[in-house]
């Protein structure tokens, strides 16, 4: 092994000696900023690898001469401490030009040597992704001006939560307060609000509706009155769904983080709205103290199940008014109810 290292070092020295350095070269390092998160694979340096995410570029001047690039990465863990050596890479000589990290290991910019700090590498690997700060130092071997940049990884939560409106809540058409958790590293938030056309529609399906009521980039604020973001008028009685999308910058389009989806209602002050009918049904079920209908009651209270409608045994649906009358009658004549069972 020692012999191999000596041979490698000797050949490197020989290669370096053969480089005809005619002028002082400068390398200007550009890094993707901000870069809240990335895969560890972005920091793999090996030959014959393709498809690496482009997160840093090297602008070398003057161009055309043979140069050797030294890249050294130091790491400071997220919980503080000092920078420690993570890995370093030396290329074989190549013709000076501008390039990015995704060309490392290619035929003309091949890697001659790479070393790493095993302890730090293992610690990082256990995190599963780059964390804390990475200081990247580049130099042209044999003299010249190098450069250095720091990338800080905030690793935002993979999903976040809408605080208000609460699922299943009702609001006046002018008073829907949207608020959500901060996402460290987000460059902006987008609020999307769409109608849920039927309570049987899944929330995922509803948020994908083609013509949302709100589809607005709100910058970095985490609260908004939805009234001020409306693109078209919503109407009382509608059930809406809302989702926040956080934009996390990064190569290949960056990434989007999505909040959970919440549903809420626009208050309809008249009887007959889904919300009112569901409330009326809830009150009825609460009057049945022998456990009849307790499955449905539990579904309504715990799982936000809403009443879509009632139909007769011949299949014809009751109007909203008929439903309200039926429920009202049953509230006053609970002994009329025989059973309420799930239809499989």
């Amino acid at each position: 092994m020692k012999i191999l290292k000596i041979v490698l070092l000797s050949s490197l020295l020989l290669a370096a000696a053969s480089v005809d350095i005619k002028a002082q070269h400068t390398v200007d390092l550009q890094v993707f900023q901000p870069l809240p998160e990335i895969d560890l694979s972005a920091f793999i340096y090996t030959n014959d690898i393709s498809g690496l995410p482009r997160i840093m570029c090297f602008l070398i001047n003057p161009k055309g001469d043979q140069v050797v690039l030294e890249l050294n990465i130091e790491w400071q863990p997220a919980n503080g401490g000092s920078f420690q050596e993570l890995l370093s890479v030396v290329t074989n000589p190549f013709t000076a030009r501008d390039f990015c990290n995704d060309e490392f290991g290619s035929s003309d910019i091949s890697i001659a040597q790479s070393t790493s700090n095993q302890t730090a590498i293992e610690e990082l690997r256990r995190s599963g992704r780059p964390t804390g700060k990475f200081r990247i130092n580049v130099n042209i071997q044999g003299g010249g001006d190098g450069d250095s940049e720091i990338i800080e990884f905030s690793n935002p939560a993979q999903n976040f939560v809408i605080l208000t409106p609460e699922s299943g809540s009702s609001h006046d058409i002018g008073a829907v307060l949207a608020s959500w958790e901060d996402i460290a590293g987000a460059s902006s938030y987008k609020v999307k609000v769409a109608e849920r056309s039927s309570p049987t529609q899944s929330l995922d399906d509803a948020i994908e509706s083609g013509n949302p009521y709100v589809d607005a980039d709100v910058g970095l604020v985490t609260v908004a009155n939805l009234r001020t973001l409306l693109q078209r008028e919503w109407v009382p009685g509608q059930e809406m769904v809302m989702q926040i999308e956080a934009n996390i910058p990064g190569p290949d389009g960056g990434s989007k983080l999505f909040s959970n989806i919440v549903n809420f209602y626009l208050s309809d002050l008249t009887d007959g709205s889904v919300k009112m009918i569901t409330l009326e049904l809830t009150e009825l079920l609460q009057l049945l103290d022998d456990g009849t209908g307790s499955d449905l009651l539990q579904d309504i209270i715990d799982n936000g199940v809403t009443l879509l409608g009632i139909r007769r045994s011949d299949g014809t649906p009751l109007t909203a008014d008929e439903i309200m009358r039926l429920l009202d009658f049953l509230k006053n004549n609970t002994n009329t109810i025989i059973d309420l069972t799930v239809v499989n």
Partner: peptide, 25 residues
């Protein structure tokens, strides 16, 4: 009068999570 009721009628309650059968006198 209530004790005379022997006809039953069924309704289907449609909810967002499935259907329930409501049977009444």
């Amino acid at each position: 009068n209530s004790s005379k009721k022997d006809k039953t009628i069924k309704y289907i309650i449609e909810t967002s999570e499935g259907e329930y059968e409501l049977e009444l006198f």
